[in-house]
């Protein structure tokens, strides 16, 4: 994807490492939790990328670092080519005004003591530059975009009066209200009923396309990804093991972990009941003492002893847009 598109990336992440220091007795360094350990990717306007991985792989740390909530140990996040940490608080604030954040749990993501009007007005007040009439117009506009109607009925309501789907629409409206260029969605449908999931995903996709947004969609659920994204990034133990466009990833997945993940995805189909699925045994490794070499090698059925468990695998370009970090493909 670096070569195919001439437009500059909105967001680029270069060699990002987020390590949390472990201390004993409040001082005394004993190690680091390497939640994110050397991740790079780029997203251009109008592109959506899904970051997929099981829980504990560092997805949330990656997302919070992209939001500027955590400071990376090395590497940085570049927005329109500028380091978001370059000028401390000021540059982070300027960057965040261009980022919308859609959270996982709509029931906890909205303050219970504010009504819909107040919830949506807050970002506008904080951003400044709006008078009351402007704010009112923008709130109506954004509620229309997330298909909340009748708008007047919803404005005075408090979160406890709304259903999960409606709440998630409000969360999306709040993320959209400052007209961001990037939306970061952290498992936006995992807490919702199956019946409203598709609707919310379609809404997000529609917004992304109509506003030409860059979109990072973080999930552990591969089955929702196909509604959405151009790219899939598969994350394992703090590293991206495979990056590919969605079509190629689903047909032609290369990394053993990706293959396992795809085969584990449940589709409600009668045939699946009779098919044996090979699921890798064991658990994700400790992020404090990751295994040497490829981090997946203890669970990998295709592990090459003496290579995979010694040396970090290189990143191999199978096609210009398809990269995989695995020794299996290094000879080709």
């Amino acid at each position: 994807m670096e070569t195919s598109n001439a437009t500059p990336p909105t967001l680029s992440i270069r060699d990002l490492r987020v390590w949390f220091e472990l201390r004993r007795w409040g001082f005394g360094h004993v190690g680091d939790v390497r939640a994110v350990d050397g991740i790079s990717f780029e997203i251009r306007p109008g592109e959506a990328a899904a970051v997929v991985g099981e829980s504990g792989c560092g997805k949330s740390s990656l997302m919070k670092t992209i939001l500027g909530l955590y400071k990376p140990r090395t590497g940085s996040v570049y927005f329109s080519g500028e380091d978001i940490h370059a000028q401390g608080r000021k540059s982070i604030h300027a960057y965040r005004a261009n980022v919308g954040y859609v959270q996982q749990d709509p029931f906890a993501a909205l303050p219970a003591f504010m009504n819909v009007w107040q919830i949506l007005e807050e970002p506008l007040i904080i951003a400044g530059g709006h008078n009351k009439a402007n704010r009112q117009d923008r709130i109506r506009q954004v509620l229309e975009e997330v298909k909340i109607h009748p708008i007047e009925d919803f404005l005075p309501k408090y979160p406890h009066m709304l259903s999960g789907g409606q709440l998630q629409r409000i969360v999306i409206a709040r993320a959209m209200i400052l007209k961001p260029r990037v939306i970061i969605a952290d498992e936006p449908v995992s807490m919702l009923d199956a019946s409203v999931r598709v609707e919310i995903l379609r809404l997000l996709r529609g917004l992304q396309q109509s506003h030409n947004l860059s979109f990072i969609y973080i999930t552990h659920d591969l089955s929702t990804v196909k509604y959405f994204s151009e790219y899939i990034f598969v994350m394992y133990a703090g590293k991206l093991v495979e990056k590919a466009p969605i079509g190629r990833m689903l047909r032609n997945s290369s990394h053993p972990y990706t293959q396992a993940l795809l085969s584990a995805t449940s589709d409600p189909e009668a045939m699946n009941a009779r098919v044996y699925k090979e699921v890798p045994s064991g658990e994700p490794p400790s992020l404090v003492n990751p295994p040497p070499g490829c981090r997946f090698h203890p669970r990998c059925s295709k592990c090459i002893h003496g290579l995979c468990d010694v040396q970090d695998p290189p990143e191999i370009h199978l096609t210009p847009q398809h990269q995989v970090a695995c020794w299996l493909y290094s000879q080709r």
Partner: peptide
């Protein structure tokens, strides 16, 4: 709480978070 995290992402200042988001609870 996630809603505090959201407030940080839309740049709510520390004072605002303390007075408008933490204390009302």
């Amino acid at each position: 709480s996630p809603y505090i995290e959201a407030a940080r992402v839309y740049n709510a200042s520390d004072i605002r978070i303390i007075l408008r988001y933490l204390t009302p609870r």
